[in-house]
Computed example of a mutant assay.
Amino acid sequence: MLIVHNIRLSRILRNTWQVDLIMIVSCTGAYLTRAFLIKHHFEIPAIIPAVLGTAIAFFIGFNNNQAYDRWWEARKIWGALVNDSRSWARSVITYISQNEISDEEFKTLKNRMVRRHIGFLYALKAKLRGAVDENYQQYMEEADLKEINQHSNVHNAILTLQSRELQQLNKDGMIDGFRFIELNHLLIRFSDEMGKAERIKNTVFPTTYNYFTKVFIWLFIVSLTLVVSHEAGLWSIFIGWLVGFVFVSTQINGMSLIDPFENNSSSVPLNQITRTIEINLLEMIGAEKIPAPVKPINDEYIL
């Protein structure tokens, strides 16, 4: 996620230089075609680029709106995970009664349930980013790892372990019915938020929208160059590129938000969010080793 208000020129060029070259070549080809092939035969009607420009504006506007909706929904999901994770740790620490177990066993029990949740978050993050991230293993006990390794959906298996232990605590009288309902409700919320994130990840944005937008932009640039070359001459190449750059950069900006869980500068900062929850929860259980916050990359964005 970008954390600066001004975008560096180098970043813009890095993201668009290939498209810029294609546009310049297309504009040059359009200018030469008119100058040497069709100049003395007919004129390109100015209404063609005008109509194409209007159509492209609608396409780009739709694409960008849908892309931002996906990104914002993903951000709200992980914002809810932050709040619910803190509530889970707070409830585990305060709601469970010690009964007849020793102080050490009681502390181990609470630590296990809180640390297991941190493992859930890291497993979910790895799944959403399609990466092999085994950080969750350091927060799981050996018996838990042996069981969840039999499942393809690790984060869902971790929630099952939490639910099973919660049920056992209720059976042993360490939490009453009301507190059991509250803790179980948090597990349900984790499952809902997990499912919403998976829905975004597994739902592919219709490729036809992106494809036809690119085609229309290319046709627009070529037709605009053909039309303005009559008055502007060689400058029509620059004008075609400049107007095309506006459309292309806007379209690229929107498409960068299509998959909000990708590991890039425009995505939801899962590393930062997960680390923030990890720090908060470890501090709540009094852990000795607390990891450092995730730092921005080049003071420009954070992952």
Rank of each mutant, 00 (worst) to 15 (best):
L224P: 00
W235L: 10
T208P: 11
I181H: 04
I221P: 00
F212M: 13
Q150V: 11
R199N: 12
V215H: 10
V246M: 08
G244E: 00
N264W: 01
V246Q: 04
L234M: 15
E262M: 04
I297A: 02
F216W: 09
D259L: 07
G254K: 04
S267F: 00
F62P: 03
R275G: 01
R189P: 07
N264V: 00
F178S: 03
T28K: 00
L52R: 12
T28I: 10
L9I: 03
R70L: 06
E142R: 14
A126P: 11
I239W: 01
A287F: 03
E141C: 05
L242V: 09
T225V: 10
A123Q: 05
I77Y: 02
P293T: 15
Q98P: 06
N298V: 08
M23F: 09
R86I: 02
N149V: 07
R275D: 02
G254N: 05
R179T: 09
T207G: 14
V246D: 01
Q162W: 05
D259V: 07
N135T: 12
W88N: 02
R189L: 07
H40G: 10
I118Q: 01
I175W: 09
I56P: 00
R179S: 06
E288H: 13
T33S: 13
R8S: 12
D69Y: 14
N210G: 09
V222K: 03
K171F: 11
N64K: 07
N202A: 09
N149D: 13
P269Y: 01
I56V: 14
L81V: 10
R8W: 06
N170Y: 08
V243C: 02
N111K: 14
E100Y: 06
I22A: 08
I158F: 05
A74W: 00
R86K: 08
L121N: 07
R75H: 02
E73S: 03
E283C: 13
E231S: 14
E198N: 15
G240P: 03
L159Q: 08
A287M: 09
Y139H: 15
L145E: 11
F106E: 05
A89V: 02
L32A: 10
M194R: 00
L161T: 05
I279K: 06
A123S: 15
L124P: 03
S265T: 00
T207R: 14
A143V: 10
K214N: 12
N170P: 04
D84V: 15
S265K: 02
L124D: 02
E231L: 13
Q66Y: 12
F247V: 06
L52E: 08
K289Q: 13
E193Y: 13
T250E: 05
A131C: 10
H155Y: 08
D69N: 15
I96D: 07
N271F: 01
E100P: 03
P45K: 04
V227F: 12
V51K: 08
R189M: 13
I279D: 07
K76C: 07
L303R: 01
K76Y: 03
Y209K: 15
D20N: 05
R8Y: 06
I7E: 05
F238V: 09
A143C: 07
L303T: 00
Y211R: 11
T28M: 11
R164V: 11
E141T: 09
D144T: 15
V92Q: 04
G53M: 08
